[in-house]
Computed example of a mutant assay.
Amino acid sequence: MTSPFTDLLTPDRLKELADDRSYQRGEAYFRQGRVCSVEQQEDTIIARVEGTETYEVKFEIEDQNQLSYQCDCPVGIDGWFCKHCVAVGLAWLANPPQSQKVGKHRSQSQPSGTSMQDVQRYLEQQDKSDLVKLILERAWKDNGWREQLLLKVAALHPKGVDLKTFQHALKNAIEVGGYIEYAEAKGYARGIEKVLNAIAPLLDGRVDLF
Rank of each mutant, 00 (worst) to 15 (best):
S3R: 00
P4V: 00
F5K: 00
D7C: 07
D7Y: 09
P11L: 08
K15T: 02
L17W: 11
A18S: 13
Q24I: 02
Q24W: 01
A28G: 06
Q32F: 04
G33D: 09
S37I: 06
V38H: 02
Q41F: 13
Q41L: 12
T44M: 12
I46T: 14
A47P: 11
A47E: 08
V49P: 05
E50T: 12
G51I: 03
Y55G: 03
E56S: 12
K58C: 13
F59Q: 03
E60Q: 13
I61W: 03
I61D: 12
E62S: 05
D63W: 08
Y69C: 05
C71A: 00
C71N: 00
D72N: 15
P74K: 00
P74N: 01
V75R: 05
I77W: 11
G79D: 04
W80Q: 15
H84D: 04
C85V: 03
G89Y: 02
L90C: 13
A91H: 02
A94K: 01
N95I: 01
N95T: 11
Q98H: 09
S99W: 05
S99E: 10
Q100E: 15
Q100D: 15
K104V: 10
R106T: 11
S107G: 11
Q108T: 07
Q110G: 04
S115E: 02
M116E: 11
Q117L: 11
V119I: 07
R121D: 13
K128P: 03
S129F: 05
L134Y: 15
L134S: 14
L136A: 11
E137G: 06
E137Y: 02
R138K: 15
A139S: 15
W140D: 13
K141G: 06
G144D: 15
R146T: 04
E147S: 14
L149W: 08
L149K: 01
L149N: 09
L150C: 13
K152L: 14
A154Y: 03
L156N: 15
V161F: 04
V161S: 10
D162E: 15
L163S: 10
T165W: 02
T165G: 12
F166D: 13
A169V: 09
K171E: 15
G178K: 07
G178F: 09
Y179S: 10
Y179W: 12
I180F: 07
I180E: 08
E181R: 13
A183P: 06
E184T: 04
G187H: 08
G187F: 08
E193G: 11
K194Y: 02
N197H: 10
A198H: 04
P201D: 04
P201Y: 02
P201R: 01
L202H: 07
L203Q: 08
D204W: 04
D204E: 03
V207W: 01
L209K: 06
F210T: 05
F210R: 07
